[in-house]
């Protein structure tokens, strides 16, 4: 396809807006290498001491491990609950499948601030605030709709005849699912895993309602840290988080790319 000429005015406007869009991420990188004790831009000296500071900061390190464990558990549960649900909605099509599917995506429509409050009000009397289980439940409410959506789409895009062919060859429904359906859904499964993991790992608002003083996720710890003092350590953590996100995206792209080579 040949390039369509783009007017210089549009190029300049788009360039400036891109600069604006990327500005916060662009300034964070140099600040993370600041040698100053406080945040200033540009920094007056350079060092990697703030990266070291993260690993010496027990609050941040604890929060990191909690976020990691939380994202892991939430992702596993989302797949474990979302996959059967997607299968039932797409392949078994019970009466009212459409309505059910809408109901299961509804939590995404609710602003997280409202959902967070709603969960706080029911979880508090149950003693779930400040507990790992409470956090898992809260995150699951928002990751599950994503999981069901992505997995449903992946499933709906599979040619049904391939599964039928397996049935004709004598495979029972469960065998068909594990030997044919699941392997063909590989790229959908990878995307779902990545999406649930990132959503849970980055989630702030729900976590702010659910965490107590002794149990903080990394975004909550960062939020509290930035709220009190915006020192360059937050920049160093931000850079690490961006790198982590990029790594996840890269893995997904590689896997999806690999998948494309053998799924037509």
């Amino acid at each position: 396809m040949d390039e369509r000429p783009v007017s210089p005015a549009l190029k300049i406007a788009a360039g400036l807006m891109f600069l604006f869009l990327l500005a916060p991420l662009l300034v964070v990188l140099p600040i993370s290498f600041s040698g100053d004790d406080f945040m200033a831009f540009p920094p007056s000296s350079w060092s990697v001491k703030w990266y070291g500071a993260i690993f010496a900061n027990s609050v941040m390190m604890n929060a990191f491990w909690i976020s990691l464990a939380l994202a892991f558990v939430v992702t596993v549960l989302s797949l474990g609950i979302g996959l059967p649900a997607a299968y039932a909605l797409v392949r078994l099509k019970p009466p009212g499948a459409e309505a059910l599917s809408n109901l299961f995506s509804a939590p995404l429509l609710l602003p997280t601030i409202v959902l967070g409050l709603a969960l706080l009000l029911v979880f508090a009397p149950m003693g779930l605030i400040g507990s790992f289980q409470g956090l898992v439940a809260a995150h699951l409410i928002v990751t599950l709709p994503y999981a069901v959506r992505v997995l449903s789409t992946a499933l709906a895009n599979l040619p049904l005849t391939v599964e039928e062919a397996a049935g004709m060859l004598g495979a029972r429904p469960l065998t068909v699912f594990f030997r044919v359906t699941l392997p063909m859904m590989r790229s959908g499964l990878v995307s779902t895993t990545a999406l649930c993991f990132l959503v849970s790992f980055d989630e702030v608002v729900l976590s702010l309602f659910m965490t107590g003083p002794r149990l903080q996720t990394l975004p909550v710890a960062m939020y509290n840290h930035v709220d009190q003092q915006a020192d360059p350590m937050a920049a160093a953590i931000s850079v690490l988080l961006v790198v982590l996100t990029l790594a996840v995206v890269l893995v997904v792209d590689r896997t999806a790319g690999l998948t494309r080579t053998f799924v037509k």
């Binding site: 869009l21 990327l22 916060p24 991420l25 964070v28 406080f38 831009f41 980055d202 920049a235 995206v249």
Partner: peptide
Amino acid sequence: VLVVAPLLTSAVVRTYGWIAILSDRGLVAN
């Protein structure tokens, strides 16, 4: 990718970036 990347980074991180730009000792003020 440049458009989607910010979408995948935490709002806390990006807000922090804006603090670095807009605060009294930030990019714009300096």
